[in-house]
Amino acid sequence: MPIGMSLLRKSYRMTVYLIRRLLSSFLLVIALLSVVFFVIHAAPGDPLDLYADSDLDASQRDLIRQRLGLDLPVWQQYIHWLAAVLWHGDFGTSLRQHRPVREILQEAIPNTLLLTVAAFVLHFLIAIVAGVLLARHRGHPWERTATVSGLAVYSLPNFWLGLMLILLFSRQLGWFPTGGMMSLDAEYLPWPRYLLDRLHHMVLPVLMLGMGSAMATARYLRNSLSEVLEQDYVLAARAKGLPERTVLVKHALRNGLLPVITLIGLSFPFLLGGAVATEVIFAWPGMGRVTIDAIWARDYPVIMATTALAAVMVVVGNLLADLLYGWADPRVRLTTKDVP
C-alpha cells in the first residue's frame, strides 16, 4: 500500500534526523563541560584551592592532593572528572557545604525550573496577546506607547526592577511577600492553602523574570503576523467565508507563530541568566542563588557544576525548540533529509 510505505519512509527519515541531532547535542555537551573544566584550571593559583579549603596546613594539603589525584597530569584529571560527570552525574563535593554537589543541584534545579517555566509561559502569553493586538490594529496610537514601554522594560536592569517591584508591591502595599518560595509555616498548611501560598510567593519573581523582553517578542510576532496577513492564503480563507477570528487564529497565527518558535530557543539563555538575578533578589533557592553563594565562598566544584548545567540546559532547550519547529512546519518536517 503506497500510503503505508511513504509514512514508513517519513518516520525513518525523522528518526535518522533525531538521532543525528541528539548525537551532535551530546558532543556539544561534552565540549561545554570541557570548556568549563579548562577555564577553571587555567586560572592562576594552586589548583588545590579548587578542591579543598585554603586553611589547611601543608601536610594535610599534600594528602588531599594525592587523594584527589591532583598530582596527575591535567589531561588525566580532565578524563576522570568528565567520566565522573557523565557516568555518575558526580560533580564532586562542595567545599562550603561538605556534601555532594549533586545533592545541592538536585534541590536547587527544580526551583529554578519552576521559576523559569512559569516566567516562560508568562512571557509568551504577554507576547502573543500583545503581538496579535498590535498586528490587528496597525497604525493605532497605542502602537507607539507599546513600543516605547516595551523598550523601557527591555532597557532597565532586571535586578533593579525586582527591587522596585518589592518596594512597591511588597513593602509599600504589602500585597506580596518579599521573597522566598513559601512562608515559614507553609508546610503545615492544608493542601489548597499551601498551593496558594506557593503561588503567592511566585508572583513577583515570575513577573520580574517574564516581563523583561516580552514586548520585544511581541514586536517580532507582530511583524511576522503582519507579513502573514498579507499572504494570499489569508485572503483565500476569507473568500471562503470564514469568520475573521478563525482566519486569524487558525490560518494567520498558525503560520505567524512559526518564526517565534525559533525565539523560544533563544530565550533559554536569557531566562536562565535572568534567573540568577531573580533568585538573588527574591532569595529563591535555585541554581542562580547557589552559584552566587558559591562564588563568594570560592566553592569551585559548585561553580563548575552550575555553569556547565546552565549551558546544557540551553542546549537541551534549543534542541526541543528545533524539534518543535520541525514538527510544526510541515515543509521542514517532510522535506529535510539532513539538516546541519
Binding site: 570548556v35 539563555p269 536562565l272 552559584t291 561553580i303 555553569t307 546552565a310 549551558a311 540551553v314 542546549v315
Partner: peptide
Amino acid sequence: AFPRVFLVL
C-alpha cells in the same frame, strides 16, 4: 551556548 551571566560569573 553559555548564558553570558554564568560565563561572566
